[in-house]
């Protein structure tokens, strides 16, 4: 039986009194494209920050390839992170560096590769995302879609086993967004990576996902395949699929008190 590459166990997070993640459990298997879907504020970005070690949960564990990421030392964490690529929603390119230097940076920092090999690897990764010939451009000279692709090339620089993507198509026009989805599919085939995508874009989900989890108010209320999701009778899943707005069940007294501070 195939062991999960990522195991999340009883993960809790709270900011003050507000519980953001309420004891979630999840297994993600090697080579699958797993999409974590959810509305704004549902806790998905918090979960992603835990998965890449930017934030410690209040309680619970995350195992990446059997290494407990939550209790790992800084050195152990850095070793785990070498196998992880991250595509940030904002692209997070270094504006003072060329596109090529942005992609080459993790290779220069973390590998014994000579610069001549790094240059070829950088050009290969830029070619893969359709940015051949852009290595000497500065990030400011790129469009939003191109920045996202450059950031993807950088996330892939170290040939990661796991790629995390935070809202990969957010802020892009529909055609560029489809291009990013196709790119994710191509990369999965080429490099046999496990890809975890956090998004709220439904169109994208049904193109790229092998399995989907719907995070709602800090809990997974659905985990399954695309077909299972389409057939699901869970009300929140149906609401999500039908893009139905919340019902207006306002408590008048509560609303008034919120305004007058009562």
């Amino acid at each position: 039986m195939v062991e999960p590459i990522i195991k999340i166990r009883d993960l809790h997070t709270q900011y003050g009194d507000k519980k953001v993640l309420k004891g979630i459990n999840l297994d993600i298997y090697p080579y699958e494209t797993f999409v974590i879907l959810g509305r704004s504020g549902c806790g998905k970005s918090t979960l992603l920050r835990h998965l890449i070690g930017l934030q410690k949960p209040t309680q619970g564990y995350i195992y990446i390839k059997d290494n407990n990421f939550v209790t790992a030392s800084e050195k152990e964490k850095n070793d785990i992170l070498k196998n992880i690529g991250m595509l940030f929603q904002s692209s997070a390119l270094f504006n003072s560096m060329t596109v090529g230097d942005n992609v080459a940076l993790p290779l220069r920092e973390h590998t014994p590769q000579p610069d001549s090999t790094i240059k070829i690897m950088t050009r290969m990764k830029l070619g893969l995302v359709g940015l051949s010939g852009f290595e000497n451009f500065m990030p400011a000279e790129l469009s939003g879609g191109m920045k996202k692709r450059a950031a993807l090339a950088r996330a892939l620089a170290m040939d990661p086993e796991i790629l995390f993507c935070d809202e990969p198509s957010a802020g892009l026009d529909p055609i560029v967004a489809v291009g990013i989805d196709n790119l994710i599919l191509k990369l999965k085939k080429a490099f046999k990576m496990t890809i975890v995508v956090v998004t709220h874009e439904l169109e994208s989900v049904f193109v790229i996902a092998d399995r989907i989890a719907l995070l709602h108010e800090g809990e997974f209320i659905f985990v399954g395949t695309k077909d299972e999701m389409r057939r699901s009778e869970v009300p929140v899943v149906r609401q999500f699929l039908q893009r139905a707005p919340d019902e207006d069940d306002m408590d008048k007294d509560k609303f008034l008190n919120s305004l007058i501070g009562g």
Binding site: T117, I120, M124, D159
Partner: peptide, 9 residues
């Protein structure tokens, strides 16, 4: 890709 780049070199 480092192996592939090495072969290209």
């Amino acid at each position: 890709s480092s192996g592939v780049a090495t072969l290209i070199e």
